[in-house]
Amino acid sequence: MALLDVNSLSKRYELRPSVLARVLSGKRMRRIEAVRDVTFALNEGEVLGIVGESGCGKSTTCAMIAGLEPPSAGTIRFRGQDIGAFGAKALRRYRRHVQIIFQDPFESLNPRLQVFDQVAEGPRALGLWSEAETEQRVLRMLADVGLPPAAYRNRFPHQMSGGERQRVGIASALVSEPELVIADEPLSMLDVSIRAGIRDLLSELAKRRRFSVIYVSHDLSIMKGFVHGLIVMYLGQIVEAGTFSSIVANPQHPYTAALLAAVPVPDPLFRRAVPDIVDDVARPLASLAGCRFAPRCRQAVDICHREPPELAASGNAAQSVRCHLRHRLQ
């Protein structure tokens, strides 16, 4: 049985214009599908990467899996149990098993709590251990994330650097020994020169403490060596899925190919190819008929604008892609 089983997960938001707007300009209620029909499974010990740009729904998906937002449709099963059916109490017990590391190291910490209290908050709230045992575990956790407990336990967030704060965030998530950790862009707000260190820390802890990871980012390059499977999201849907290496070596979906081509390279002599994509369409809110990527796709043909494609295995079995032209692209 998979650790996490996500099926047809969707999240819809409704935009309700004011009464005045409705009367004067006939604006109707609009629905945004932030996440549409997302399906994947995660086994124990696996690291799954989710890549996509802002607005693609990756953060919303994380929030739903962490139980912070209710899904509009679909199921999330953790060890076979449907978390949508959880009441408040069950949901809090769920927190012990599934935790989340946030993107902004400063905003995700309570400015008035010292490091020790910050990390101990989870176990205390869940009533996991006695105070004495909590102290032991918290201090050991701080050491494990590279923050010498004696020096750091009484510090406040504003007294620490971004990297240190993020380590506190990691410690807070891991102290209750979850089985699944969702990392929502944990590195994007850190200096580049320390990102690798934090990522390696996470990787090492995942192996040692044996938890699975869902690693969300818009940066593909940092995922290498850490992530096993990969999901590429665009406007709320999975457009490509497979193992990290096969997707990077051989991207099937035009969006994935464009993403890979667009990553800036730190070499002044390198002349990058222009990504094969139509530029800058203003944010589409209304649901379109057909493939959501079609307006930007240079290879779009008639069917692409009419019918939304399904996610299906492409030529090689390791990948699945959501594209009408999957058999033509190799």
């Binding site: 990102r195 390696d200 593909l220 390059s221 940092i222 990077v248 890979l260 390279v265 730190p266 390198f270």
Partner: peptide, 13 residues
């Protein structure tokens, strides 16, 4: 700094 052309290179912080 990661370089997508050499993703096998281990990044050093």
């Amino acid at each position: 700094f990661p370089d997508i052309r050499e993703m096998d290179r281990k990044l050093i912080s």
